[in-house]
Design a protein around this nucleic acid. Structure first.
Lengths: 134, 134
DNA sequence: GATAAGGGTTCCAGCAACTGGAAGGTCAAG
DNA sequence: CTTGACCTTCCAGTTGCTGGAACCCTTATC
């Protein structure tokens, strides 16, 4: 199977697949004309990586997950540990974003947003505590 | 004021401040010895950028915010528009992360996490619907 | 046989926003 | 006078791709 079909079936852009080969994540065969040749197994791995990436795992984590996936003697505890640590990071990111959201909405709410220059958002960014600003 | 003090007072690493000068975000003066010399105004801008960055604005957005900040004739509506569009993006990121969180916690919950190879997390990544897996 | 379309290949550059490190100049203290 | 803490510049690397140039392969059509 050529890269175009592999891309279509895995949901990854062809460029990304080439990149994954570059960094040694997958190693498709080559046809006699030099084209990459993807087997079902390769396709499977690509989809695996696509899903792991869409869950926010880094490429290096995907590499580790892939090798656990291939390892018939793995301990599911190892996978669970990775997943949990990733969950922690996701949680931290959400918390950080929610803090930004809270601060920024507060500022936005205070800003009347008209043609006057007076702006609590800019004041807030400038470090001024703007209790009242009209 | 030297870069070290500017860094300490703005909460930005010196490297970052040099980088900001590189990309034209701030333009500190130079002392006769070639050292950067930061005025109170520069310091103010650095703190401004630091806060904007910590609210998740991109550097280019910071540049725009800075120029609005400097512009005495600005309309607060322009600032509010930027802030709101940024809030939207934050919201989208949170939603995406929460989706990852939901999917991944579900898989983690299903995984018993012991020394056996059987693993619903890997099955999930492989695209298998694992209803029951013990 | 020419050619055009639609694959594929390589390599190089660039994005964001820094960060690390090397090689060297400057300055204040002991 | 030297030591150490600063400062300077420049170059390379990070993450995960993405775009583009220049070129090869295959198939169909004229």
């Amino acid at each position: 199977m050529n890269i175009g079909d592999a891309a279509a079936q895995s949901g990854l852009p062809a460029k990304t697949i080439r990149y994954y080969e570059d960094i040694g994540l997958i190693s498709p065969d080559r046809s006699s004309n030099g084209y990459r040749d993807f087997s079902e197994d390769h396709l499977h791995k690509l989809s695996f990586v696509q899903r792991a990436r869409s869950l926010g795992f880094t490429v290096e984590e995907c590499r580790a997950l892939l090798s656990l996936y291939e390892d018939r003697g793995r301990a599911s505890a190892d996978v669970k540990t990775m997943a949990r640590s990733h969950l922690t990071q996701i949680g931290e990111k959400i918390t950080a974003l929610q803090a930004m959201q809270a601060t920024l909405s507060e500022l936005v709410d205070k800003c009347h947003g008209d043609d006057r220059p007076d702006c609590p958002i800019l004041d807030g960014l400038a470090g001024n505590k703007t209790e009242e600003s009209i």
